[in-house]
């Protein structure tokens, strides 16, 4: 395996909950990201999946230091970003860029495409040939040269996302973090943008951290996939391995919930329905964070001991006490008609 470009160690991002006007005392914290370790190897794509509120976007923003890090290390190219400040951090940001979810909101409606694309170059004081660089970038993302003098509202959603991508690669970064790059787009457009991201990776040697809620999209673009639940990673493996052999009960349920556009598959599938909603990250359940909804939950350990992410098979980690038993089939999911009362109290 190639050396990691980005190493995240024990990353925690907590947002304080405050009460009172004068004293402003802290009464708790929303543990958006609560102890994450993740490696992103050079030239690879790592996908981060999870449902809304699991902390995946906060993790992406924390890597770029767009939110403050409470604890932990983000080592990028040998340097700990968590310790950087001011000018040093600003310089470092040149090599890490972000593509945002909503192409309507992430482009300034009053700036022409040319201004949008050259702003990062100006901000970092890079000498460039104005006309040529803009044309080059537009060509790179498959937009016509005439786009340079137009404004964001003149473009469709897919084209706008292309402009957002052109802006992200304008500085020739090493790492691009794409936060839900296709979820705001129409289905027929999503594939265009996914293919563009892949093409750019090949041509520019980019490393991606792709954050998405759509498992199928993540599986399609990623080499490695990490599944997040309530602020921590519960499983990580290569894309094909994870799909072929999901170990964590959450991953298993998530996969069984994704509809597949094929009646033959849909009719044969056995759905594992998860109970209830995501618990609040301000007050996460004790023990395994997933035990309140887990269909494989056992009487012991699950509700009082938080499982660590451990290596179950080569290149495949999972944070479940019973991953081996689930893999071997010794533990079966609770049958649908079995009563809930059989499990320990919620």
């Amino acid at each position: 395996m190639t050396e990691p470009l980005l190493q995240i160690r024990g990353l925690k991002v907590h947002f304080p909950i405050k009460k009172g006007i004068l004293l402003d005392r802290q009464v708790g914290a929303v543990k958006a990201v609560d102890g994450v370790d993740l490696d992103v190897a050079k030239g690879q794509t790592v996908g981060l999946v999870g449902e809304s509120g699991c902390g995946k976007s906060t993790l992406g923003r924390a890597v770029l230091r767009l939110t403050d890090i409470t604890e932990g290390q983000v080592i990028f190219d040998g340097e700990d970003l968590a310790q950087l400040k001011g000018e040093a951090l600003r310089k470092k940001r040149r090599s890490m860029q972000m593509v945002f979810q909503d192409p309507m909101a992430s482009l300034n409606p009053r700036q022409s495409v040319e201004t949008i694309l050259t702003e990062p170059l100006r901000a970092h004081g890079i000498q460039y040939d104005r006309k040529n660089r803009v044309q080059e970038l537009l060509k790179l993302v498959g937009l016509p040269g005439s786009a340079a003098n137009r404004y964001p509202h003149e473009f469709s959603g897919g084209q706008r996302q292309r402009i957002g991508i052109a802006r992200a690669v304008a500085l020739e970064p090493d790492l691009v973090i794409a936060d839900e790059p296709v979820s705001a787009l129409d289905v027929s457009i999503q594939a265009q943008v996914l293919n563009l991201l892949e093409e750019l990776q090949e041509r520019l040697g980019l490393t991606y951290l792709v954050i998405a809620h759509d498992l199928a999209v993540v599986r399609h673009v990623s080499d490695q996939v990490a599944v997040m639940y309530l602020g921590s990673i519960v499983e990580q493996a290569s894309s094909d391995e994870l799909y072929a052999k999901p170990l964590h009960p959450y991953t298993i349920s998530l996969m069984s919930a994704v509809p597949v556009p094929d009646p033959e598959v849909e009719d044969r599938r056995e759905r594992i329905l998860l109970s209830g909603d995501l618990p609040s990250p301000a007050n996460p359940p004790p023990g395994c964070r997933f035990h309140t909804r887990c269909p494989y939950r056992q009487e012991i350990r699950c509700h009082d001991e938080r499982p660590a992410l451990r290596l179950i098979e080569p290149g495949h980690t999972a944070a479940c006490h019973y991953a081996e038993e689930i893999l071997s089939g010794a533990i079966r999911p609770r049958q649908a008609d079995e009563t809930f009362a059989a499990g320990p109290s919620r």
């Binding site: 469709s156 959603g157 897919g158 084209q159 129409d186 289905v187 027929s188 457009i189 999503q190 594939a191 265009q192 996914l194 293919n195 759509d214 498992l215 199928a216 999209v217 599986r219 399609h220 673009v221 990623s222 080499d223 894309s239 094909d240 799909y243 996969m255 994704v258 597949v260 556009p261 094929d262 598959v265």
Partner: peptide
């Protein structure tokens, strides 16, 4: 053009050109 969960990585997607 839709990525499918039961599809191996690397199988290219064929997008519909243009936009709606």
């Amino acid at each position: 053009s839709i990525p499918r969960l039961d599809q191996r990585r690397g199988e290219p997607l064929t997008p519909i050109p243009g936009s709606p």
